[in-house]
Design a protein around this nucleic acid. Structure first.
Lengths: 250, 250
DNA sequence: ACCTGAACACCGTTCAAGT
DNA sequence: ACCTGAACACCGTTCAAGT
């Protein structure tokens, strides 16, 4: 064997030739994530994964039942372990803060998966009961009552996912330049009388404000905003907690 | 004319036969949104739009330069006008609350566009300078300083988009049932000792909590959570405002 | 058990041609 | 100006067949 490498599915054997000791679910997921990292989600295809691994497209289906199932697995792998270690009692704010930052760092490492987060099947699908349990524990220890637990929980998940998704789910690497130009032009054309605040704050806002920015968030520009956002949410939660205590006393 | 309806591109002339007085950009966008509403974003295709309008797929390109451009237009149409009317000075909380609710109501009317919001090209692309300007005006009138304006602005946009995207961007109508079953099974299998809080709060959380819920948010189940979330954000913003005032006095 | 190989029913988009 | 019609280079997925 290894005499007649006939290159049936156009074996390109790039890098460390992929077909070494057969496929596995892990190798398929790994290849998929690598491709999304490299070429963006918009250009992702199962057939590319197969090409990369040097097999026929249909071989993938032996390890994964559909494209969507593969994507769920990719997300799970990209996010990794998010749960902070246990913290001293009363430090629930720090625990949540750490959770949010871990999430952001994970997505920052794989910005091209962002379009899949918070939308699509994936948000529900990659649900991790261990994380849910840990968040609930933290919130109860903070003093939230179990009637309101769901709502506070939802607030926390939104806080974690919402900002970062918006931040990184710009356009794929390819389309970026094109959109940059279009947006820039649109903004330079804005009337100063009609949009006084927007034009006045242009320099400050460009590339740092959602909707207005034209670069994807692969850089650290929005980290400040993220921290401010987290503080707002945590302050809000704490106030609600204080409010509960008040109504309890009455 | 009208004698030889040869049905070239399989004219199905469903409903009020589509080809009445020629195409237009508006009719294309309208048809696209209607299709997404009816069959979900996952099943959306340009060719379907053409079929619906009784024309060849390539005819679409006369009114729209690409699939993505069409989608941007669809979003814009689905969201409609979000900006609340002017409110008495000092009522910035109410103004923002109204903005958030308008956004949620718009998405609730077209839940299938949710996967496009907050992710994809679309968040930036459908940027509306009028809205940006209005938000900035409200925030400045609330007392936020212009150095921190961007960060507060980003917080507001996240608050608006994040929750609602998560809420409605479940699975398309088709896939829903399948995922329902899988998730339900996963949860019924959870160990009570390993996940005490999760299993104890099962009844309360199912269908109401992100990640845990298996039904898409087409119903009103999460509206309560949304209102709580909004309060948290607004409380948080107000506290930051108070904090600013304090440091200014020192 | 694991993968090939052919085939099906689709896509978005380009481009020349018609009217 | 507006649309047809053919064509290109792709898709995800199914299923029988090989080893």
């Amino acid at each position: 064997m290894r005499k007649k490498e006939e290159a049936a599915p156009e074996k390109k054997r790039r890098g460390r030739s992929a077909r070494d000791q057969g496929l596995s679910r892990e190798r398929v997921v790994e290849a998929a994530l690598a491709l999304i990292d490299a070429k963006g989600y918009a250009n992702f295809s199962l057939r590319d994964v197969a090409r990369e691994l040097g097999v026929y497209p249909t071989a993938i289906y032996w390890y994964v039942t559909s494209r969507d199932e593969l994507l769920v697995e990719v997300i799970t792998r990209a996010l990794g372990d998010l749960i902070p270690g246990p913290l001293p009692a009363g430090r629930w704010r720090d625990w949540l803060k750490e959770l949010f930052h871990r999430y952001r760092r994970a997505v920052a490492r794989h910005p091209n998966v962002a379009p899949l987060l918070g939308s699509q099947i994936i948000s529900n699908a990659s649900m991790n009961p261990v994380m849910v349990e840990a968040v609930l524990r933290t919130l109860l220890s903070a003093g939230f009552k179990s009637e309101e637990l769901i709502h506070v929980y939802n607030t926390v998940i939104t806080a974690m996912v919402g900002f970062v998704t918006l931040e990184f789910a710009g356009h794929g690497a390819d389309e970026r330049d094109e959109w940059e130009d279009r947006l820039r032009v649109r903004f330079e054309e804005l009337d100063r009388d009609e949009f006084p605040l927007l034009t006045a704050n242009m320099t400050r806002m460009s590339n740092q404000a959602f909707i207005v920015r034209w670069k994807g968030g692969t850089n650290r520009a929005l980290e400040q905003s993220f921290d401010r956002y987290i503080d707002v949410v945590l302050d809000g939660l704490q106030r609600q907690l204080a409010g509960d205590a008040d109504t309890q006393k009455q």
